[in-house]
């Protein structure tokens, strides 16, 4: 069954949606959307380094994404506004990454595959990396769920309950780096943040509890992956962006639903 590239692609998309859902909810609740973007953009530098030192792309991108997230963590609150800091870091990492890739001679790299993903070329090994990483992210967030939720609501309430919000922030940072590394093959660095944010935002009007929102985001993400792949096949469009388009249309639909409900 796994011999069919469409099946592999669908499983890869579902795997990414699975990890992105709970993490994406926290990204939305904590207003970290730009943080996710910055981490993802830094991954292109990881791609360049992986190719230069011939290591696995997964390890390279995860390392750089993690470093990026940690640098942002450390630098935040030291004089620059957060969005300025992230704007500087995200775009410089992307630019340095693109420049670094151009230095690598010999191999002609299909840069587009890393910028926009190449979900139809997912191999069995890629698939196991994606599902392994996704399971790790979901397990990590599931384990820290209550503590993460408490620190998201209010840091001082978390301290008063004996939770260290800085440690929980680190958990999210690590989960984000893993997600970026596994999602790069599926949607590419430019659209990873979309897979995090759009399903979660689309799930918001449908949910009354945080857990419900995470599950709904997961379902919307998986549906977008399956429908998007099918649409890409029929319309002969690039697969990654098509998946994101389907998620965006779902967001539009649930938003309209919400305004109707409010209108009554």
């Amino acid at each position: 069954m796994l011999d069919d590239f469409m099946i592999r692609a669908a499983l890869a998309g579902i795997g990414v949606a699975f990890a992105a859902a709970p993490l994406g909810c926290f990204v939305v609740w904590r207003r970290m959307a730009y943080f996710g973007d910055a981490t993802a953009h830094a991954a292109i530098l990881g791609v360049a380094l992986s190719l230069a030192f011939s290591m696995s792309i997964f390890v390279g991108t995860m390392t750089v994404a993690l470093l990026m997230a940690l640098v942002v963590n450390v630098l935040s609150g030291r004089g620059y506004a957060m969005d300025t800091l992230l704007g500087v870091l995200a775009h410089s990492a992307l630019a340095f990454g693109l420049v670094a890739v151009s230095f690598i001679s010999g191999v002609r790299i299909d840069l587009m595959a890393y910028l926009f993903g190449d979900i139809l070329a997912v191999s069995r090994v890629d698939l196991s990396v994606i599902w392994g990483g996704a399971a790790l992210v979901v397990a990590l967030i599931g384990w820290r769920w209550s503590a993460l939720l408490t620190s998201t609501l209010n840091e001082d309430l978390a301290y008063a309950s004996g939770i260290n919000p800085k440690r929980e922030q680190l958990v999210l940072t690590i989960a984000l780096a893993i997600t970026v590394a596994v999602a790069i093959k599926v949607v590419g660095v430019l659209l990873i943040a979309a897979m995090l944010i759009i399903p979660a935002a689309a799930a918001r009007p449908l949910s009354r509890t945080p857990e419900g929102m995470a599950v709904a985001a997961g379902l919307i993400g998986m549906l977008s992956a399956i429908v998007g792949l099918r649409a890409a096949y029929v319309l002969d469009t690039p697969a990654g962006p098509t998946i994101v388009c389907i998620a965006a249309i779902t967001f539009l639909a649930t938003s309209i639903l919400k305004s109707f409900r409010h209108g009554r």
């Binding site: 609740w29 609501l153 509890t209 945080p210």
Partner: peptide, 9 residues
């Protein structure tokens, strides 16, 4: 305490 409207709880 400010609870973001995006967090249903």
């Amino acid at each position: 305490l400010h609870v973001d409207g995006t967090l249903p709880i």
